[in-house]
Design a protein around this nucleic acid. Sequence first.
DNA 1: ATGGTGGCCCGGCCA
Length: 257
Amino acid sequence: MRIATWNVNSLTARLARVEEWIRYAEPDVLCLQETKQADAAFPHGAFAALGYESAHHGDGRWNGVAIVSRVGLAGVSAGMGSDDDDQGTRLIAADCGGVRVLSVYVPNGRSLDSEHYPAKLAWLARLKALLGETTSPDRPVAVCGDFNVAPDDRDVWDPAELEGMTHVSPPEREALADLQSWGLVDSFRRLYDDDGLFSWWDYRGGSFHRHRGMRIDLILVTEVLADHLTYGLIDRQARKGEKPSDHTPVFIDTDVP
DNA sequence: ATGGTGGCCCGGCCA
């Protein structure tokens, strides 16, 4: 099964690029973040035309997450249980081809001294609790999305330059590690040790061409899936060309037991 | 250069 995740930074602006990518990458499941759409605006028909079912959780202007699947889409659950926990429309989950799939958009945090920073840590803690309430680390589970955390220094262009910023601070990395301690493996790291392989580059200052990026888009999987990984890719091609998102899609191939 | 680019949707916020 090919499981992908992509922060599209407005699905309205990105639909043609997403359709193009689905045609050539042929994911079985694609998790989307930052659709920036209300549920009524989500283009279910465009995905149906490509052979995919879809489920969306969005309120219009900010955030918005979706799961697009050609291997079934059942047991859809949107949000974290309360609006306070959710901090906007940032989570949707569904059963796809025997895998419990979550599409998540972790709050950015803005800056270490912002009230949004502890809220980001709380969101990650709530996500761990939600996993415990809804599934088990013994089952096939894939938590896919924009985590807005670079797991370690290999995942950023220059750790020294980012000192004191969000995405790399020890509490964020500890919150991510604590989430993984539930029973989730960073699938990319099971496959590759390299540094300098990024999934996001700021639009500003020619960051993409200067290789100034971060790996913040992750596919965290339980061991039953991590054990059967056959391939994985951060598809930098999708960051090029006309009207790219500032993120590029990431996918893994795994055999579902 | 106290900015920068791009998306929301039209003045300013958010990433």
